[in-house]
Nucleic acid binder design. Structure first.
Lengths: 151, 151
DNA sequence: CTTTGCTGGTTGCCATGGCAACTAAATCTC
DNA sequence: GAGATTTAGTTGCCATGGCAACCAGCAAAG
């Protein structure tokens, strides 16, 4: 009756596929990372630190860079410290600040995990997308992200 | 050096946008649903039951329909029962089975939430996608989901 | 019919994540 | 420069979710 309050058949299917994708792709990538003993969250932290100069970053900046709540980062770092992946150090410039630093072991773990993860991302994503489709995807993602930020 | 173990600049940007989208779009939809007092998980359950004949389904089938582990459904149903959204009933045909049934109150909650959620999905997703882009998206999603199932 | 195996659900344990309250340090104001 | 405000992190509480162990019916063999 009212096209405003219901999705059409076409949209319903697309949306179902989208929801499925969010769930299953995440799961597939998580399983791949698990082979290196890492969770998706672990990897996000490690990858960011690994590309930062010195393998270290202010907790504040790290959280902002990966889009996490500061509480989430704090707790995750605590777990990673326990596993010997990172260390905490006080920030020289700011008495409140903490610097998160990659350990040597984490460097190796990351070095091993990155190629595997990149391969997984290719296998589950980029290998399935043609160049012209990628253009479309870029445009759509840009719009969706802009809107999501607005709220 | 080795194009196999690293993503190119182009891919890196697209992937970053994709990861951001997964995080933020989910958050935006969750916030919209929260206005009706529901989580995304609640909504998945309610929406499925609502469109099932009699507003009821075997737990096994419900779990399969929304792609959940049986343990996850069991625990979530327990919480929803406590909030008066669904009831459990023994399955007549199978001594092991449980049937999950929508309560009258849940019918109303769902009736109110569905239009809002549909509006949110339009606002954050379909309104931002042109018809031809939607075709592309459909094709890509189909391929991605097929691959994710393979493992 | 019993034995064996399969199915449907529940529960325990553990890792996550969000949100708010709280502490401490750095800034801002007048 | 003392008090008000903001910023950086940590912690507690609570809701989720995954995975494995476990229990109870059902079904398949013989």
């Amino acid at each position: 009756m009212d096209p405003q309050v219901t999705l059409g058949e076409r949209e319903r299917r697309t949306w179902a596929a989208f929801v499925t994708m969010r769930r299953d792709l995440e799961g597939a990538l998580a399983r791949d990372l698990a082979r290196d003993g890492l969770s998706v969250s672990d990897f996000e932290v490690l990858a960011r630190l690994d590309q930062a100069p010195g393998g270290e970053m202010r907790a504040r900046d790290l959280a902002a860079a990966i889009g996490w709540d500061k509480a989430r980062l704090s707790k995750h770092v605590t777990r990673m410290v326990a596993r010997g992946l990172v260390e905490r150090r006080e920030a020289a410039e700011d008495g409140r600040g903490q610097v998160v630093v990659l350990t040597t072991g984490a460097r190796q773990v990351t070095a091993a995990a990155v190629p595997n993860h990149v391969a997984a991302v290719r296998r589950h994503f980029f290998d399935l997308i043609e160049p012209d489709e990628l253009d479309v995807l870029d445009r759509v993602l840009t719009r969706i992200n802009a809107r999501a930020v607005e709220g």
